[in-house]
Design a protein around this nucleic acid. Structure first.
Lengths: 178, 178
DNA sequence: GTCTATATACCGATAGAC
DNA sequence: GTCTATCGGTATATAGAC
């Protein structure tokens, strides 16, 4: 495991990974309007290599905006508060790429819609009363809006928001009966 | 006021208005990636006429995404519930164009940020406790997220949401102390 | 006043040199 | 295996014919 000259296959795989990471950052910064040329520039490779590895811009985009699944939590409201707390501080590259593109790319919009529906369904199960489905949809949509305001619109009030301050608010969303 | 042959200036103004409305719909459907050609096609005019009237695509975009100011309400929480109720059912063309473009256009992002800050400041004044600023920002951001989920992601649970159902929820956001 | 023609630039994708 | 050169397409914007 000490020193070990990388094979060509390993070097190729490492290059492919660098390209994918560059694509996530470019799509995260400019949405689906990001160009293959800019992705290649960020990755430090030739533009033709991007297509050599991933076939087309569309295929690379699909990989870059694939959301990381984080639905394994048990205590849903507590998990939700943790999600919001984390989202207020940082945003994974793939998630940022997905959110940045979801209003101008039909594929990204569908991916986000599926993700929100799954999360809302999980949350609705943990809710007591009859309006659970609607309220769960409102909660997950609100978290999305807060994430956008924090990371894409740079609302000053959310810059230094403390996780503890918002936890109680989220709790009131899920427990208070309207 | 009966019959009256329109002058050239009147016809020109009517054409300009049709172009602006077409631009709002195109920007609302495709974001800032909408093309002058598609705008002209929707308006039923030649593409060069669009630039003849508005100078550049950027200038037309700035006019199309200018949000309509609706901050004259007195009872802020009640006004807010009404806003959310209206937003769940329909979305003005200029607002749709602004929201659709705000993640891929720096100008639209800044316009939306200013709009949210103004609304949050108004709301914070009507709030009692010390976390008013943060909570007001969370509320207006949540409304934005719900609007996106309803009109751009087509969340089924929000399709037929009743305004009365959400009013109480919004009220709990503004009155419950965390 | 309105439209045809075009200048200029950049896009994704491909073919072939090395 | 990697990169140069380029094709075909489309965009904004302009100039000039009518």
């Amino acid at each position: 495991m000490a020193d070990h000259t990388p094979t060509r296959a390993e070097r190729r795989e490492a290059t492919a990974r660098r390209i994918l990471e560059a694509a996530q950052h470019e799509f995260g910064a400019h949405g689906d309007g990001a160009t293959i040329r800019s992705i290649a520039r960020r990755a430090g490779v030739d533009p033709s290599l991007v297509l050599q590895h991933y076939g087309s811009k569309q295929a690379l985009f699909s990989l870059a905006v694939r959301p990381v699944s984080d639905l394994e939590g048990e205590d849903v409201p507590a998990h939700l508060a943790e999600v919001l707390d984390v989202r207020l501080r940082e945003l994974p590259a793939s998630t940022k790429a997905l959110m940045r593109s979801m209003l101008t790319s039909a594929e990204a919009a569908e991916a986000m819609s599926v993700y929100l529906r799954e999360r809302a369904a999980r949350l609705a199960e943990a809710m007591p009363d009859d309006h659970a489905e609607l309220r769960a949809a409102l909660v997950v949509s609100s978290i999305m809006g807060i994430t956008i305001a924090r990371h894409f619109l740079d609302l000053p009030a959310l810059e230094d928001a403390d996780g503890d301050d918002v936890a109680a608010l989220v709790d009131s969303w899920t427990s208070t009966a309207p």
